[in-house]
Design a protein around this nucleic acid. Structure first.
Lengths: 210, 210, 210, 210
DNA sequence: GATGAATGAGCATTCATTCAT
DNA sequence: AATGAATGAATGCTCATTCAT
């Protein structure tokens, strides 16, 4: 019952994707992946030279893309944004890019962000959150003005909101495969965070005014 | 160096809590737990009959409480809520209960929700989400009225919002230990979701009116 | 790219010879041998039914020759050698035969003697040594005369000298490929052992005379 | 059937010594060693953290000693030796030291020199041979004088004689355990090489004189 | 005849669990 | 009650061998 090479490669990737997604990289078993792929354990190594390389094959490309975009956008953040209008454009661009990536590689992103403990990718989620956090912190500082009210509390708040937002996006791509639904849900989640964060900022402004 | 039984039990629980929290159930090592507890590996088994039972001892009580509340509140949901006033009261009650639990047993909850993969608790987070989802769905149905506009899309939306909210709460208790900060962050996150969901509902209403 | 059978067989043998020589039987890899031979791994099994049989094909003939000579010469040893002159002739004959074999099949001999661990040939080196030992023992007994001075010590000495000599010859064919150099080194080594053993025997005679 | 720790450690070391000696480091199996030691495979790792460390425990100390002596004696070689008398003393010292080491740690030496392929010790035998070779080459150069007759042939000869001598010593300690016998055999082997090499040198002189 | 994908037993190593002390 | 040595099944991985093509 010999199979075509590409077919087996697909089977391995699918099985690995499933195992990594469900159990995480460390807990996933090469034997189980082989079993799910319908092949003998040793045969995986004809296609991928090890467990780590199998992970690379799955999330490497997505990681590269993501890292490239983050680098670019981080550089743009350092250039002072003169007008509100620019800021809105920046936000939309970041959102569209990320949402685009999320929709295109949802499972891979999910593993990259949530199931990579113990690999060289384990810091990625944190970096993404720090990036979102940076945007929020900038926003908060603007509100606080020069009145030195920005505090560790604000930092924890920005970190939490960034974290939960990224986590929320991860969840959406984890739980859905239909891109129309994913797009709708991401839009809604961003609506919630936009409105909610606006409210929180308004609240800050109120306190500042006192 | 005979030790009092209760002292050792405490040491084991503390060490296990730490390990489970930091590495998750599967990746935690009984040897390391014993070492951290200052006892021999084999001695754990005098107190707990295995790794799974040790987990039970830690999150079982919290799980029971949580399950009990959820049962109760779910039953209350089935009774039609006559007035808006009641609904507000219900929301506040649920929120206060959950937040109370979260704050009281943050570490245990964190393990229950985020580090229980591969155990019989791995479904709990999902159940909690389903519960929150139910509340949101009821809300959405009310908006849609009898005009049969409630759809699968609304269901996915409720599920997503519930999921990300619970996940967000989990993250807060995962990343912080100071109860004042935890309370602040939970309040802020609920603010965001309240405001945001109100906006989303308003949006639905607008569409319905057309 | 259809190949002639004999051509492939040659390629396999050459590649196997190389691998066995460099890494020893156990550590040699059938994959590597196939690769070096320019054929697919599985194809080796059309020509040789397994790793062990491949070894047989390489060193079997040399082993047979060597064993045949040793049998013959051993039988000759049992016939009492009347005169010194005969003995000298016998020695020279043995030496010439062995050196001839060594030079003709140096690689195969090298594998047979040094790289056959874990196969049915691993005892051969020892047998060859026992043969040389037998010659030396006879010599020693002659020196000791009928005075019953021949002892276990003499046996150990004969065994050691035989062993180190054979080992030395093995090393020469292991480390060199140029037949002129091999011949020179073998001659020199035999010079050393001839002179040295003569000295040892002279020493024995001296002790006997006391 | 719990055993005393030191007893098991001994059993492991003995079994490992046996396996390494018979099959070499690479081909030796931890399972087999455990079996021979009468314990479960995993239990070895309570005593030694891995295969390599098990080897270290066996030959590490011997290696250190040997390396220290070789360093010292190599330094002494670089200092010009004025008189023949000094040279004789030097030879005797080297011989006594090496023979002392050989007799004290015969099995360990045997593994160090003959069964360490694939480990960080695999170069040691070669270094020892190069050391002996250096001594021989010095001797040969002396004979050749300034007449530029020293050649690559002489180098191959020195290398071969050094190699076979060291190999011979290795064999003695591999095949015997009784120190009296070992001493006698080493003395005899050195006699053979001394006499033999003297003969070879005499031969060189003869050729030079022509 | 030849290929190379596939198999499965073997390797070193880890770890929850057991049990003699 | 406590120890920690011992077990054995599981892990990622390699390789001689088989077999569908």
């Amino acid at each position: 019952m010999q199979k075509l090479k590409e077919e087996v490669r697909r089977a391995i990737l699918n099985a690995a994707l499933k195992s990594f997604k469900e159990q995480g990289y460390a807990a996933a078993s090469m034997r189980k992946i082989a079993q799910d792929a319908g092949i003998a354990a040793g045969n995986i190594y004809r296609y991928y030279s090890g467990k780590e390389q199998l992970l690379d094959a799955i999330i490497g490309p997505v990681f590269e893309k993501c890292a490239a975009y983050m680098d670019e956008y981080r550089r743009m953040l350092d250039v002072p944004l003169a007008k509100e209008r620019n800021k809105k454009q920046y936000f939309d661009m970041v959102r569209d890019t990320m949402v685009g990536l999320f929709k295109l590689h949802s499972s891979e992103f999910m593993i990259l962000l949530n199931r990579s403990e113990g690999t060289r990718y384990e810091h990625v989620k944190n970096e993404l959150m720090l990036f979102v956090e940076k945007i929020l912190v900038d926003e908060f500082r603007l509100v606080r003005g020069n009145r030195e009210h920005y505090s560790g509390q604000d930092g924890a708040l920005a970190s939490m909101l960034a974290g939960t937002l990224v986590e929320g996006l991860s969840r959406i791509i984890r739980d859905h495969t239909d891109t129309v639904t994913i797009e709708m849900l991401i839009d809604r989640l961003l609506d919630v965070y936009n409105t909610g964060i606006a409210f929180v900022i308004e609240d800050m402004r109120g306190i500042e005014r006192l």
